[in-house]
């Protein structure tokens, strides 16, 4: 299990934002992306997750091993916490959800419709979803937004356990999670430089 990125260039809305990125994350390691707002962290993460194609360069990992968690949690307010989680477990071909409920202390909320959860509780539910997918590579975009200190600690513990089992996590966050295994990558130096315009199709980029 290994995530390898070579010479990656990513674009948002047709404009290159990051260029020349190369890194590798081995099993049991985490990579924390840092950088100012608008630097292209979300774009990079979406490219890593395969949601958008890279402009150039390659992203390599075993097929069907990635799960992505973005700003929106994909939670249906009309469904209960358990229904939400079971749905995602089934989509990923699994059944077991009790460990995910336990890890984020959601048992007492299990039958509550997700629409009645607070923002932090919703976020915990969204993060619990990662555990039911059984995927090894987690791609997380600002996972700790609206979490309180206790919930952040829960999250850090879950990530640590995931890494200990040989998982991989790539996350964009500004909070120090206290992950010793984590490498920090500042994306600011990889900001795409303005290219000279040639007269072919690149004139449009």
């Amino acid at each position: 299990m290994r995530l390898t990125v070579r010479d990656l260039c990513v674009a948002r809305g047709g404009v290159r934002v990051l260029d020349g990125l190369s890194f590798a994350v081995a099993a049991g390691e985490a990579l924390v992306l840092r950088g100012p707002n608008g630097a292209g962290k979300t774009t990079l993460l979406r490219t890593l997750a395969g949601l958008q194609p890279p402009v150039s360069g390659t992203v390599d990992y075993p097929a069907d091993s990635v799960v992505y968690a973005g700003h929106a949690d994909g939670i249906k307010p009309a469904l209960s916490v358990v229904e939400n989680l079971s749905f995602w477990a089934q989509v990923f071909g699994r059944k077991e959800i009790s460990h995910a409920l336990a890890a984020y202390e959601l048992e007492s909320l299990a039958d509550r419709p997700a629409g009645f959860l607070s923002a932090g509780q919703k976020r915990r539910l969204g993060l619990a979803r990662l555990l039911v997918t059984g995927r090894a590579i987690w791609i997380l975009d600002e996972p700790t937004v609206s979490l309180d200190a206790r919930a952040v600690a829960m999250f850090a513990a879950v990530v640590r356990a995931h890494l200990a089992e040989g998982g991989i996590a790539v996350l964009a966050t500004h909070i120090d999670l206290g992950l010793d295994e984590a490498t920090v990558l500042d994306v600011a130096p990889f900001r795409a430089v303005r290219q000279e315009l040639d007269d072919f199709d690149e004139a449009f980029l």
Binding site: A49, G50, L51, D64, V66, V67, Y68, A69, G70, H71, A72, D73, G74, I75, K76, W88, V91, F92, G93, R129, T133
Partner: peptide, 16 residues
């Protein structure tokens, strides 16, 4: 609805 709440992103990375 699935687009707004991000479910579609998640479905796109699912095995389906």
């Amino acid at each position: 609805l699935d687009w707004e709440d991000g479910s579609l992103d998640l479905l796109a990375t699912a095995p389906l």
